[in-house]
Design a protein around this nucleic acid. Structure first.
Lengths: 167, 167
DNA sequence: CATTTTATGTCAGTCTTGTTGACTTTCCAA
DNA sequence: TTGGAAAGTCAACAAGACTGACATAAAATG
């Protein structure tokens, strides 16, 4: 019993057994745990959680982004994000500035301290990804990215590939 | 400025920019959210959370597994798992039987009701994975699996590829 | 100019799912 | 047979999600 359609490659219709899919599902679960493990350890030392990491990551990625922008990306409620941001502002990792044109908005920036933690977190995460990419090879990486983009909701796909400007 | 090493394919050493890695990291984040979205909706209807899904999934995968086995797989504390299992046993989705040889152990099985919910959850998750796999193509799927296995901790890699017996 | 809408934030309370610590039951080995 | 290890349960607590109600201030609209 083979899993591929006879032609064997490309865009043909795949025969996908439940067991094949189950392995992919479990792989996602286990990989995501590994993926978050290194940052989680660093965050725990500082008394933060995964929610703080996410906020720091996306503020770093789009300096000057507003709270509302972040809400769209993170997909949580403003109350939940607010708790996290308040803490980060208190701890002087994030700077919240009133909008120059629209004073209702708060524009968010990492402080120097914020950038230090961001770098520590992202470097740990990149280290694991780099090792995985190198072990799997460039073709596998391309496939990896391709499947992940298909799994996510289309909105996020757009966001992912815009704004790779800085640096 | 190109991202690949000159040879362009295969097992050569990759030049991986921080931006390439960042895209992979964000792709994991967004994809995982999509990955859990469909089951989450179903679970919410029944008043369950993601933890219940995980327990149901792995009890279904290894009928008769013990609590200790589950703990190794799930990577949470036994107290945390116990709360989830207690609820599932109360609700008659999981059957907990005292071990025949070692009475300290509890062997776990899905009931008929449990299997019904398990199927609803896994079918929703498979539907999304199937669509993503088909859109990405078989080569991409192979790469996807390969990179995920590299990201996860090695212990889990072993578990993933053993025990694909039933069915 | 008055009213409504939007953006942000606060407060209170709930739920899920992690955590640690204390405990019981059971098994096994000294 | 007794003492420790292993498996599982119970109690209490914390992080971080959620909802709903409300306050404030600015912008947009009539």
């Amino acid at each position: 019993m083979q899993n591929r359609s006879p032609s064997g490659g490309g865009e043909s219709l795949l025969f996908l057994t439940d067991d094949q899919l189950r392995k992919g599902i479990e792989a996602m679960f286990f990989a995501y745990r590994g993926f978050t493990a290194d940052p989680d350890r660093i965050l725990a030392k500082h008394g933060y959680g995964r929610a703080h990491h996410r906020a720091i990551h996306f503020v770093n990625r789009q300096p000057g982004t507003t709270v509302n922008n972040l809400l769209d990306i993170l997909g949580v409620t403003k109350q939940s994000l607010n708790r996290v941001l308040r803490r980060l502002v208190e701890d002087k990792l994030v700077d919240s500035r009133v909008g120059p044109h629209d004073k209702r908005e708060r524009h968010l920036y990492l402080t120097e301290r914020g950038r230090v933690l961001e770098h520590e977190l992202s470097e740990a995460q990149r280290r694991r990804m780099r090792a995985a990419y190198r072990a799997a090879g460039p073709d596998a990486v391309q496939g990896f990215r391709k499947v992940l983009e298909q799994i996510m909701d289309p909105q996020m796909r757009v966001f992912l590939n815009t704004m790779s400007d800085r640096s």
